[in-house]
Simulated scan of single mutants.
Amino acid sequence: MNNITSDNQITIRKGVSADLPEMLQLFTATIDEICKQDYNLQQLEAWKSGTENEERWMKVIRDQYVLMAAIENKIVGFCTLDQGNYIDLLFVHKDHQHKGIASLLYQKVEKEALRCNEKELTADVSKTARPFFEKAGFQIVQEQTVNVKGIAMTNYKMVKHLIS
């Protein structure tokens, strides 16, 4: 996939293993700053501890369809698609919220799912991301409580039926 640049100089490209340190930093900073209105400190800390599982992140880069959004070579967001139909991760840098980056990444991921003849997209979505996913046409299948390091957190199993 070639780099695609839009008018506001956001470049979308495939993620590579060299992106991992910057991805992890963006992941934790975004959770700290953007999700704090929806989750308490214990929950945020448990969620961020996901960065400690290096094997999982290597597997994401190796096995998933990973897209990076960059402005002037700095990663400002990323989205991953697992097994062609599950959005595993979608994060946008805390300083670049509400600029269309998540939408741009999501559109490319949906396009990839359609290219793979998928009929639906699913995601486990945080309280913080729920409005974005609803705007993108996803519906809640169920509210769920997940345990991360013994800390209970609410998220939503969501689905979007794709029309090719």
Rank of each mutant, 00 (worst) to 15 (best):
Gly15Lys: 08
Ile31Met: 02
Phe78Ser: 08
Gln83Asp: 13
Asp88Met: 02
Asp32Val: 03
Gly150Ile: 09
Gln97Ile: 07
Ile101Thr: 04
Ala46Phe: 07
Lys135Cys: 06
Ser103Ile: 05
Asp82Phe: 12
Met68Ile: 15
Gln43Ala: 10
Ile87Lys: 02
Met1Leu: 10
Ser103Cys: 10
Asp63Arg: 11
Ile31Cys: 00
Glu54Tyr: 08
Val16Pro: 03
Asp88Cys: 04
Asn3Cys: 08
Gly100Glu: 07
Val109Lys: 01
Ile140Tyr: 03
Met1His: 11
Met1Thr: 15
Gln25Asn: 13
Ala29Phe: 06
Glu55Pro: 00
Leu44Gln: 05
Phe132Lys: 09
Thr122Glu: 10
Thr5Asn: 07
His98Tyr: 07
Leu162Glu: 04
Ser103Thr: 14
Gln37Ser: 12
Arg130Thr: 11
Ala152Gly: 09
Ile163Pro: 00
His93Ala: 15
Phe91Tyr: 15
Phe91Thr: 04
Val92Met: 02
Asn2Cys: 06
Lys111Gln: 12
Ile12Glu: 00
Ser126Met: 03
Met153Trp: 00
His161Gln: 13
Glu143Trp: 02
Lys160Ile: 03
Glu55Phe: 10
Phe132Ser: 12
Arg62His: 13
Thr11Ile: 15
Asp7Pro: 01
Lys160Leu: 01
Lys36Gly: 04
Gly84Ala: 05
Ala113Thr: 06
Asn155Ala: 02
Ala70Leu: 14
Asn155Gln: 02
Lys36Gln: 12
Gln107Gly: 02
Gln43His: 07
Thr145Ile: 15
Val109His: 04
Ile4Phe: 13
Thr145Tyr: 07
Asn73Asp: 14
Thr11Ser: 12
Thr122Met: 13
Lys127Met: 11
Val125Leu: 06
Asn85Ile: 00
Gly50Ala: 08
Val146Trp: 08
Ile61Glu: 05
Val76Ser: 01
Val141His: 03
Asp88Phe: 01
Arg115Pro: 01
Glu118Tyr: 07
Trp57Cys: 02
Ser49Leu: 06
Thr154Ser: 09
Leu44Asp: 01
His93Phe: 08
Ile75Arg: 01
Lys157Met: 11
Asp38Ser: 10
Val60Asp: 05
Gln9Gly: 11
Gln25His: 08
Ala29Gln: 14
Val60Ala: 07
Glu55Val: 13
Thr5Pro: 00
Ala46Trp: 01
Glu120Gly: 05
Asp19Tyr: 03
Val159Met: 15
Leu89His: 06
Ile31Trp: 00
Ile34Ser: 14
Gln83Ala: 09
Leu81Met: 12
Ala46Pro: 00
Met153Arg: 00
Ala69Met: 00
Phe133Asp: 02
Arg56Asp: 11
Gln142Cys: 08
Gln9Ile: 10
Ile12Ala: 03
Leu114Gly: 01
Gln25Cys: 10
